[in-house]
């Protein structure tokens, strides 16, 4: 196993692990924005720059995707590495000056502010890290959003900037967004969930008991399809009756019960179970 020496601390990592993996293993913090362990590394934010010892010279590399193939010496806190990271952070602060999350990260990096004015438009502080795009493609398998435009005009959008038909309203994009650009909005009156700012809307499954929204019908369908139960399920979209009736299976008692339970919100489900326990 190759050894990675980071600022004098040595750790052994699997061949092919990244410098960032090694640093995290060694307990050394390197700031990241576009990195997520569940997703491919694109190294687009350039915040995780570190210095790599090349013998007679040192090269700035991104820690999140530099593969360790043999013993390497890395400097995280060298002047040049810190300066590179600060430079990138200052540019990001200029783009998204109102992002609280970004300010906190900057402070942790010792960046007090930025000397650059705001010259590029960012949609609600979006820093174009691309995590949302990757999670939608690689984890959810939908590719409902992608990058539109080029250079300074680059934005994250659904195709043609229209509400996406592929969006299942899962909110994974919002969950991974490091700067809170993407929001999941629940429209109770229409019984819909909206992924903002992409304007994609999906019907919500509502609780039979109390009418509270549970989750997007399409997420439910996809989840059940993934576990192989898709054909067994009746879905009820908001006040539209049964969407589909599942086939009768051998588990005659199990399915009706599951069907019923899926139509309850977690709170009502808990109350129902509690009630059953209290008076069998």
């Amino acid at each position: 196993m190759p050894t990675v020496t980071i600022d004098g601390h040595s750790v052994e990592v699997e061949r092919g692990a990244t410098v960032l993996d090694a640093a995290r293993y060694a307990g050394i913090w390197i700031p990241t924005l576009c990195y997520h362990p569940a997703l491919s590394s694109e190294a687009s934010c350039r915040l995780c720059m570190v210095e790599l010892d090349r013998g007679d010279w040192r090269q700035l590399v991104t820690a999140c995707n530099y593969p360790v193939r043999h013993d390497v010496i890395v400097y995280v806190m060298s002047e040049r590495a810190q300066q590179a990271r600060r430079g990138v952070m200052e540019l990001l602060l200029a783009r998204s000056p109102d992002s609280q999350e970004l300010k906190e990260l900057a402070e942790r990096m010792g960046v007090k502010g930025t000397l650059w004015p705001k010259v590029t438009e960012s949609q609600r502080n979006c820093i174009l890290c691309g995590l949302c795009v990757r999670v939608c493609e690689q984890i959810i398998g939908k590719s409902a959003i992608g990058f539109a435009g080029r250079g300074a005009d680059r934005t994250v959008a659904a195709p043609f900037r229209q509400p996406s038909e592929d969006c299942i309203g899962c909110g994974a994009c919002a969950a991974v967004c490091p700067v809170g650009t993407i929001e999941v909005r629940v429209h109770k009156d229409e019984c819909e969930v909206e992924i903002s700012p992409f304007k994609s809307r999906v019907k919500l499954l509502v609780c039979k008991q109390c009418g509270a929204p549970i989750l997007s019908t399409q997420v439910c369908e996809q989840a059940l399809r993934n576990v192989g139960w898709a054909t067994c399920l009746p879905m009820q979209a908001c006040s539209q009756g049964n969407v589909g009736m599942g086939r009768k299976s051998a588990h005659a008692t199990f399915w009706p019960e599951l069907r019923k339970r899926l139509r309850l919100c977690p709170k009502c489900r808990r109350l129902q179970t509690a009630g059953r326990v209290a008076s069998p």
Partner: peptide, 21 residues
């Protein structure tokens, strides 16, 4: 170059925009 930058990485996208400004 700013017009032709793909916009993927921060320094090229933001740095060139600052330079042009």
């Amino acid at each position: 170059l700013l017009n032709e930058s793909c916009g993927k990485c921060t320094p090229c996208r933001e740095g060139l925009a600052q330079m042009r400004h």
